[in-house]
Design a protein around this nucleic acid. Structure first.
Lengths: 338, 338
DNA sequence: ATGAAAGCGCTAACAA
DNA sequence: TTGTTAGCGCTTTCAT
């Protein structure tokens, strides 16, 4: 092995196999029309030389890449991970890869990220959420690649949508609590406008309380996202100190709901005996905690699967009119609420 | 807007700004030697035309990309997410992006993924773990880009290492339990050879028990990774049914440890009164649960930060000899253990 | 089923 | 500081 020699190209492989570079190129394509034995010889030659296909050159020449760009607010979030997992799975068969970027719940970081991703000429782009900077919108609109917004139902969609109304989902949860005779309901989280889905959930809470003629002012801020267990516990402590007569708490996610639950446990407050708790997202922690936590399941994997399906359709019919696919979040009643 | 016109290139921008394409190229580089006013004019022209820099062409011509490939077993794992987060943060200033792929804890999937990533000519590649298929090893060795293996201390490293011994970390935990007078200790997880770090942890447990002259056969399989809360609860139930005299349980991660804890709670078994529980990873759930869970903190963010630092160093001195940076996991004693 | 020529959009190398 | 020329490695297009 001569370590400092320049890496072999298709021409080198072609020479080794006694064919033209074009035939090597065809041998590496999936439907490439090459004699099976010729292909075998080529692949053997490639292996022998340690040839690595150059996607860079391929993309430049063909003016098409083999990946879909996906942006999520955070890795380390099981909900978004499930969406991405289903997306990857659904695109694998099309020979499409997923290129993942995360925005830290910041639409300016999203802007930076999306500009970076577009430079690589993705086949399509899937973003989380429907709120973006003006510049991001503009970039995506001009990008001339399919755009899918997920986890939201934006009023002015850029392209396609696979999502649901975060506000409506919480509205349904409030309805359920009120039907069970609970009046004094609080909401934890969703104060920072960085997490737009969290903000929508809080807005849904306020609207629902108003619709029932109830006091929707029990709003506990939990700081900038990601709002997790610790923030949920802190918010719950604050709530118990300031509004001790609260009967039920809806949290922006199951993670903060679990934190809230632990705060109650440490204070000896019985859940759901003294206070009911609900979350959002159907995270594993809420399914398994004692008590288990009432939640709303937005079917993250389904979002990914449908987005993948839509992308496959767009591969075949690029001019498909903008589609809005609504997911129906399900209410899961568990031990943490009466 | 003519939607079907081909997208503008540097030449178009150059023409618009009244300069040569080369000057536009320089204007887009960070240290490009261009008159400030010229650059301003160029950027304005680019904006006006909706120009998007073509990384594909840039990479092909310059034979160097602007990204580091990173592979992790799973997104949706807070530990790996923290490593990646620190890596991204540490590379941002160098103008390097992270391209993330995940392997589903499968070294064959890893092989596929790494081949895909290498086709894009990354500046470096950071992988999780030190066990790979032969073909993966070969590919990485021949790739002529820096390789960093993390979260492990492989015996035959491919390149650089930023990691720790998973076995030794568990060994220390066993020592602690034994010193507290606990003899009948079980281990949950790590049966499948897919999660090599989990397997190492179990091996560390067995070796430590043997070193103390204790019975190291209380091993509860938890199925294929990712082993999470549900599997931890199931394994704990199995353990309580089959070896009810167990005094302490070490779990392959805090997630399964939390599951094990809930299993005890549902059966009315006091933790740590009747049984001690420990996990691994210092996940948030174990810090906040009631009781909080004793764990080992492998400093995931530190791993990422050091890897990033090493990569920066390698940018400057590419011929740096292989470095092995050892992390020292810390034992965090919490409420779940005596 | 295979080959030859041309060129994708950018930048290295050199020149001015 | 800016411009000119050539070519990165592949695939499109056309030919055989």
């Amino acid at each position: 092995m001569h370590k400092d020699r320049r890496p072999p190209t298709m021409s080198d492989v072609a020479q080794q196999a006694g064919v033209s570079p074009m035939t090597v190129s065809r041998a590496f394509k999936l439907g490439g029309l090459v004699q099976p034995e010729t292909r075998a010889r080529i692949l053997a030659a490639a292996d022998e030389l340690g040839y690595v296909f150059d996607s860079t050159a391929s993309s430049l020449r063909s003016q098409r890449s083999d990946f879909v760009a996906v942006t999520i607010p955070s890795i380390a979030n099981a909900n978004f991970a499930d969406t991405v997992g289903a997306l990857v799975e659904g695109l694998k068969h099309q020979g499409l890869t997923v290129l993942l970027g995360y925005t830290n719940y910041d639409i300016h970081e999203e802007e930076r990220l999306i500009e970076q991703l577009l430079r690589r000429k993705p086949r399509a782009i899937v973003v989380t959420g429907g709120r973006h900077t003006d510049r991001t919108r503009q970039r995506l609109e001009n990008a001339s690649v399919p755009v899918i917004e997920t986890w939201d139902l934006p009023e002015n969609p850029i392209g396609h949508i696979v999502g649901f109304s975060n506000a409506a989902a919480i509205h349904g949860l409030v309805d359920h609590f009120v039907a069970r005779g609970l009046d004094r309901i609080a909401f934890i989280g969703g104060d920072a406008d960085r997490d737009t889905r969290g903000t929508d959930r809080r807005a849904g809470f306020v609207a629902a309380m108003r619709a029932h003629g109830l006091d929707g002012s029990r709003l506990i801020a939990a700081g900038p996202p990601p709002i997790s267990m610790r923030e949920g516990a802190e918010a719950m402590n604050h709530l118990l100190n300031t509004r001790p007569d609260t009967q039920a708490v809806i949290c922006v996610s199951d993670l903060s709901a679990f934190g809230a639950l632990t705060a109650c446990q440490r204070r000896g407050i019985d859940v759901p005996g003294q206070i009911s708790i609900a979350g959002f997202g159907n995270y594993e922690v809420g399914a398994i905690s004692v008590p288990s936590i009432t939640t709303i399941d937005p079917s993250p994997a389904q979002i990914g699967a449908i987005a993948a399906q839509l992308l496959c359709q767009l591969e075949e019919y690029p001019d498909t009119a903008p589609i809005c696919h609504r997911i129906s979040p399900r209410l899961l009643l568990r031990e943490s609420s009466v």
